[in-house]
Design a protein around this nucleic acid. Sequence first.
DNA 1: AAAAATATGTTGCATTTACAACAATAGTAT
DNA 2: ATACTATTGTTGTAAATGCAACATATTTTT
Lengths: 154, 154
Amino acid sequence: MTDKEIHYTDSIHFELEQTARLMKMLTSQLFIKLDIQLSMDEYAALDTIFCHDGICQRDLAKLILKDRANTGRILNSLEEKGLITRYIDTKNNRLVKKMNITDQGTSELKIITAKFNEYLSGMTQKFRAKEVEAVRDTLRKFRMDLEQLVNVNI
Amino acid sequence: MTDKEIHYTDSIHFELEQTARLMKMLTSQLFIKLDIQLSMDEYAALDTIFCHDGICQRDLAKLILKDRANTGRILNSLEEKGLITRYIDTKNNRLVKKMNITDQGTSELKIITAKFNEYLSGMTQKFRAKEVEAVRDTLRKFRMDLEQLVNVNI
DNA sequence: AAAAATATGTTGCATTTACAACAATAGTAT
DNA sequence: ATACTATTGTTGTAAATGCAACATATTTTT
């Protein structure tokens, strides 16, 4: 017990943080290298909008885990770039801003995803696909439990 | 192939990002709740310094994956709080700033870690310890490969 | 020996981010 | 009906972050 102490830097929490940080560095370097005119956050938002066409801002914010303020700013940028359109609608009798991905948005999304996967496949090749999927699925379960514990103020 | 497309938001990259984000929310909320007078980053730095006493700034920066500027600022804060001391020394005939954790720093580190683990054990209890360790180890391997790919400019 | 390159840390600045306050609207309670 | 509360989105602001530039010192090159 003397020096077999538990350290934060040995925990899965720290490991997650570091791995995610490195992943973010890698992907942002990739985006620059591939000359992609979107930020990672814009890309994640665009992909989420594609998968949930007609979603309102707050629901999107909950999915990408950004606060409402930043989600609005990301959408301003995507709208200016012509990748999405926004319109006022109602949800549960409340005025909300919904959005649709444009044809250009869909097109760009596919192009970026293709480029992205081509580059990243080299990385995950070192691992068996099954193993990567297993880790992803465990992370997902982990995240679902986290969502119960964390006070997500969005 | 029509709609069985590959989406970024289904990838391990996005899953990692989201899980790490939630984890960060949880831990920062915990730090406020437990009235801990350190930021998560300061805590991670302090733990790293404990494990690598006498480390120099740049080596620490590489371990916590912050740039040199931010690492210096975090250390300013830890020094002001009396948790570390800094001194000039040489490494490979170069002037570097090394640091040691103080008794107060060691004491606070233990207290925080104890509080932290007590609260977080509830979360990981839902998973078998073996499973958590397995995911952590896979993440670590994953991270080691990432480190080969990413241009870490520190 | 002089010049160029490298290593380390600090400072300044621009971007990102989160949090709080606000505006507008709709539901709920008294 | 009036007041209170809740939902959604925007704006303002302070803190965090990363990047580039700089200062200093040392090594390497010419």
